[in-house]
Nucleic acid binder design. Structure first.
Lengths: 349, 349
DNA sequence: TTGAAAGCGCTAACAT
DNA sequence: ATGTTAGCGCTTTCAA
């Protein structure tokens, strides 16, 4: 095993000089640097991580807690995790993967042991038990999601309020007058992570502003549950022509059911999804959707953690604006909606 | 920050005694142990990870390399990763998440720096560049998947040969005489990770043994590509009645196309999938399938890594036998197959 | 611009 | 059953 001392000996300098060449924390002459670098390369030297951590009080590790089971879709978690890992490496850091079931004890453990320099928490709940530990230990941290009382904590999230509004705008622009939001399970709105409530809020607000008739249906995501909704939504003369869907599990059944009921998408019903991009792409037709910006979330989380480690203030909420991508599942309503008081503004799709 | 010395002082013992109480590496009297444990609890002591690693030459970290983009389905990766993390924790170890794009340099880095004690490689390719580094550094390692020349390396994998055979058996038992395998992209069979070839081999062998007429169709997973296949498969008088599908992307289009062609599943065509369990469950009908045993793969990988760290020999291949779960997508062929020489054995589904 | 040396907090001989 | 002590390999003052 090669150590600093080996490299120093080979380069004919002191150990501290080698250390400084590697860290770049003090000016080194051209010649010395060259000889040291050469020795490093020749010996295939890699600084010992433990020794480094001990001496510098920095592990260069960022802990990331991922929920074992979650309301969130697994691939989304994975993509965020991978983005975090990739971006962290670019900053010379590694990522520790922790399962959410370690809970607050896990956060305390990595903080107190100095295993990690910072913590990224995914799928944060409204009243998350890990948050007090974040404050106690004062470890640099970033939350992906929004707790009830963020306080001075740093959070990153998709702007779900704006997302709901953007979906409404898109449908309204196309000329839809009667729309509905098929949302998360009813339980989520109560205990949930808050994203559902914020989407609903943005959806309702904007619908009112634009004078649309809007309804909201929580959905458990099962086939049967979705089937019940679809009947409600399609029946009657005042049938809905535009659907916003924020429920990955319901999407498959929904599209199937619409087909079964003889409603073509987008001719009879337009569908806007709020879902992982992959899902939007693999559906038939491909879905007009606002995707969870996984890479951007990961990137920002690491960036903010790094900023805190550098002593910069990062408090507050970093909201990512939604990007609605128009695909094949939305279009103008072809059946004239009954008694439209005035025509809605029509825009090219 | 609390250190060993603090705890020792509080408990009125020497630092080494505290260390031994914690590690359990030598007998300690009841009284001493109790006082030490109490001090630990009162002070909220957590051993410093860096110091520990430096002194013990063990980081208690297992590095896991996950491909950034892969032939494998993302959720599968995620579930394996989470299983690895959870099981590793039970053994007192943490998991380092690395992206596959770090390649062999990444393996060398964590091995040489002592950052990780062992490495778990996912989605190993037939001729993987990281494998030589595994040998050079002699770091304990487990491969999930099978390289061309495993040699003395430890590998874990689903037994894809047996999987192909099991699917054939199931269809044959139901009375199907003409079956087909819809497989991975043609490219995968050439450069691929080998799982595709082994499945095909098991499929073909068993079909021959049982006297079935079997065909094989590589598939690119696109809608168009799948559509072309479906036509070939369904046309003619000698149409296939049983399908084995080892292609996550093709499953959705396939089911859709069968419906479109007026073929009911399982009445007209039986479908056996080799896919993540979630996919089998969320399809309509739910699919008879062999699932990738994600948790078991993770569990075994960590177990084998731990065994190596304990100095036990683990060389060779650990194959997980397939478990075919019968669901709604398979049944007896209702249309008598033309001129069956002798009846195939019929078994209750 | 470089070197010498004192730790960082823990483990593991070596003692007793 | 417990204490003493010498490092582990690096960073970082302090000196020159």
């Amino acid at each position: 095993m090669t150590t600093l001392t080996d490299v120093a000996a080979r380069a004919g300098v002191s150990a501290s000089t080698v250390s400084y060449v590697i860290s770049g924390k003090r000016p080194i002459s051209q010649g010395t640097r060259a000889r040291v670098m050469r020795a490093v390369a020749e010996l295939g030297y890699h600084p010992n991580a433990g020794a480094r951590a001990l001496a510098s009080h920095q592990s260069n590790l960022i802990a990331m807690m991922v929920p074992l089971r979650s309301d969130m879709y697994m691939p989304v978690m994975m993509e965020i995790a991978m983005a975090v890992a990739a971006v962290a490496r670019q900053g010379g850091r590694d990522v520790l993967l922790m399962t959410g079931d370690e809970g607050s004890a896990g956060v305390r453990r990595v903080a107190a042991s100095g295993l990690a320099d910072a913590v990224i928490l995914m799928d944060v709940e409204l009243d998350d038990q890990r948050i007090p530990v974040l404050r106690e230990t004062a470890i640099p941290s970033v939350l992906i999601g929004r707790p009830q009382a963020p306080g001075e904590l740093t959070c990153v999230d998709l702007d779900f309020g704006a997302t709901g509004a953007a979906c409404v705008d898109h449908l309204a622009d196309l000329g839809h007058r009667r729309i509905a939001l098929i949302g998360a399970d009813a339980g989520v709105y109560h205990r949930g992570t808050g994203f559902a409530a914020r989407t609903l809020d943005g959806f309702g607000r904007r619908a009112r502003q634009r004078g649309l008739e809007a309804r909201h249906f929580p959905c458990d995501g099962t086939f049967e549950g979705t089937a019940r909704l679809v009947e409600q939504i399609l029946e009657g003369r005042a049938a809905v022509t535009g659907l916003v869907v924020q429920n990955e599990n319901a999407l498959g059944p929904l599209l199937h059911l619409l087909r079964q009921y003889g409603r073509a998408v987008p001719e009879d019903v337009s569908v806007v999804a709020i879902c992982p991009e992959q899902l939007a792409l693999q559906s038939m037709p491909q879905l007009t959707a606002v995707a969870v910006p996984v890479r951007e979330l990961g990137r920002r989380a690491v960036g903010l953690a790094a900023a805190q480690l550098a002593g910069l203030p990062t408090e507050g909420l970093s909201l990512i604006p939604p990007r609605l991508v128009v695909r094949g599942s939305t279009g103008r309503p072809t059946v004239a909606t009954p008694s439209p008081r005035r025509a809605a503004p029509l825009v090219e799709a």
